[in-house]
Design a protein around this nucleic acid. Structure first.
Lengths: 178, 178
DNA sequence: GTCTATACAAAGATAGAC
DNA sequence: GTCTATCTTTGTATAGAC
């Protein structure tokens, strides 16, 4: 006989939100092993018990956070495309510039990429998630773009797409420092 | 009046060697923050005091290890070049295959690349060291190769070299999982 | 110069009050 | 459902014997 509201009275979504926000800061700055639960709860303004009621342990909190970020970044990139009507050379230059600028002005995203790569040996599902959510959509888009623009004379659209995406990500996560 | 031998009686190089070997295992497997000094000394068969007599702290041990590995890998790659007399297309395919195979059969090197990228935000000098010792020599070599083979019709040898190296490293450290 | 034993701090996780 | 207080383990680093 409980009404609808009582059925919802479980874990408050607001607290979950602030926990994840605090966790993001701490994990991005120090990596998985370097992150401290104490710092996360301090930043979130909740107690440890509140964290451990939602997440089994540190690893569960970490993976939950990363998966959430993967989805957000995915949708973000989709909105950012430069106009498709331009000449291919112009479009591709803008596309590349935009990706690099985006990461450059979004230091959290740079830290995220680096962390994913660094932890992907110990959290394989995490690396796969990112391939699925971030790299794959970009590669698929470019593949189709290349395939529908024969004037570019690209023998293999998939190779071209993987090359461009790989070069851009690598250039920003490894070659440059800040 | 001390003879030459007594002047050398400082820290035994053999112990330094086994410490670094144990440290390599542990750091590569768990990253910087995840590595445990206890595990390192256990693997090396020495005491903690012996470690701390040589290295000021964990970070000093870490950076010393990475710099040593950077030098070793640098020299290793130099010896591996496929025959330069081949047709450019053949040579480049072999070069790429060899780099990928090398990392694939050298899981420690893969772990090292991932760790460098993951820690490069917190240890910037470490990322720079690797650019200098590993990426730069490869890029320089390819640049010169491209410049001396005009039939490849590459407008910008440096861009081509960076693209190839970046794509190869990224493909192996991020896109694939194992 | 190297070891054993230990200091000291901090971590992750939980019990019990409200 | 959330907090305070605490348990237990484990970490880095060092003091002192040999």
């Amino acid at each position: 006989m409980s009404n609808v509201k009582s059925a919802e009275r479980e874990l408050s979504p607001e607290k979950t939100e602030v926990i994840l926000r605090g966790a993001m800061q701490e994990f991005l700055e120090h990596g998985y092993a370097g992150a401290r639960i104490d710092k996360i709860v301090a930043a979130a303004g909740v107690s440890k018990a509140t964290v451990y009621r939602r997440f089994a342990d540190k690893a569960a909190l970490f993976t939950a956070l990363i998966q959430r970020m993967a989805v957000k970044i995915h949708f973000f990139h989709q909105q950012e495309l430069p106009p498709l009507g331009e000449e291919p050379v112009v479009f591709l230059k803008r596309y590349a510039t935009q990706v690099l600028d985006h990461i450059t002005h979004n230091s959290q995203e740079l830290m995220l990429f680096r962390m994913i790569i660094g932890e992907s040996g110990r959290f394989p599902e995490l690396g796969q998630e990112f391939v699925r959510n971030i790299e794959k959509p970009n590669i698929d888009f470019l593949m189709q773009y290349f395939a529908t623009h024969p004037k570019l004379q690209l023998a293999d659209p998939e190779v071209a797409a993987r090359t461009l995406v790989g070069t851009l990500i690598h250039f920003r996560t490894y070659a440059l420092t800040n």
